[in-house]
Design a protein around this nucleic acid. Sequence first.
DNA 1: TTTCCATAGATTGCATGCAATGTTCTCAGT
DNA 2: ACTGAGAACATTGCATGCAATCTATGGAAA
Lengths: 240, 240
Amino acid sequence: MQSMESRASNNTETVTSRLRALIMDGTLPQGEKITETGLAALLQVSRTPVRLALAALEQEDLVRGAPNRGFHVRRFTIDDMREILDVRATLEGMAARLAAEKGLTGDEESLLRSCIEELAALIATGQHDQAAFRTFSSINIRFHTHIARIAGNAELIRLMERNPFRSAPLLHILPAEEALQVLRESQRDHIRLLEAILQGQGTRAEFLMREHALLPLSKATQLFDHINTNTAMRSIQQAG
Amino acid sequence: MQSMESRASNNTETVTSRLRALIMDGTLPQGEKITETGLAALLQVSRTPVRLALAALEQEDLVRGAPNRGFHVRRFTIDDMREILDVRATLEGMAARLAAEKGLTGDEESLLRSCIEELAALIATGQHDQAAFRTFSSINIRFHTHIARIAGNAELIRLMERNPFRSAPLLHILPAEEALQVLRESQRDHIRLLEAILQGQGTRAEFLMREHALLPLSKATQLFDHINTNTAMRSIQQAG
DNA sequence: TTTCCATAGATTGCATGCAATGTTCTCAGT
DNA sequence: ACTGAGAACATTGCATGCAATCTATGGAAA
């Protein structure tokens, strides 16, 4: 899953990664105008790789460009985030279904189990600080990534990797108590999911996964009338 | 849905469209090596727009490139096509579900109904030549596109537009009798789908749509041990 | 004959210049 | 003061040159 970052022998990919990071962590705020020359100066490269990077991020829909009028950072409304997470939930559900239909090898099962055990251990400590949430997210991502791998559909994996919100726990913007509760419910989902997959219950796995993927968002919208999308994106970025 | 073609004020988009067409219609066969200079000479432009077009199509996964070693046309195995259609079916299913959950306005309903009536009229003529299949495909695409619009999820539409196989009836590679049967079964699916959507039966609509989207592929694989992916892609291209 | 290395050719990756297109500011006219 | 036209400025889109990298060919050594 980290294949999109880091590995960068050429400048273009470096610029793409850095620009993506600048956007996701809010350094470049939503709606900010981006000029090729400006970015080139900022990142100390020529306009060529910048242009290529912008084209790439335009396809990811992180920046938007009008012909002859340059680019600006996409504005994410709360509805945009909801839509993206909705698609993500559907794709994750498909991955779970395929995994269940295909069945697990012993190795695959134990890998998923170990994720669940690590999460259980983490929750048992009762910690609810930022560090704990980060650890939780990284294990969680491993769990989800592995299910996608097991599903074995390359096109599916490709789309999931391009989705801006990898695993979007939104934990960081929730009050600590609420966040802990999300952790616990998530963990219960994980256990049920593995059970469904092991028993080859494709449809059950699919719907469990959908619910699971939408859990943090529904929690967050229960609590806030209006989510600040800048904060939310920073939160998601920190989670990865 | 045709937004990706035609509208091309600048060279880069023109080159992108033309290159995509060259690949989809088999002029550039699968696995063919593509050099920037070669394409630039062929299309009478400089390397710059070619480079941008290649980067775009790489993200669509129609061409693949190794660092410093250029690009080649992606090879589609039959399994690749299956995977892509599987994802497409899931996304189409999501669109149907959202449409059902949202409900139709009068205009939306009558637009879908008119598609169905046109298809019924076409089938009633009993024609089963290439021209009839093309007409069928174009109406069919309108039907599906409209459902996606009704669903109203921009991210979903974006992914569906990027899927290489828009509506993939594969009719052209089936024997005429089989193709006609596919038409009839499709039409039955359409009617049921509209019914489910009108009654707000989201899950039913979702699963009907999935089956519907996979129908042509399963028919084709019933008949052939091995589908020639070049022929199949040409067929899909003709359908669009 | 086979293997390895070196050199020549080809191709990509990047930087930059130039023309075309947009944007903004000024200033005259109302 | 306000509007509109025009010019100055800024920015993109494209072409092209150059260096770095990769590939291929040929020849020498085992």
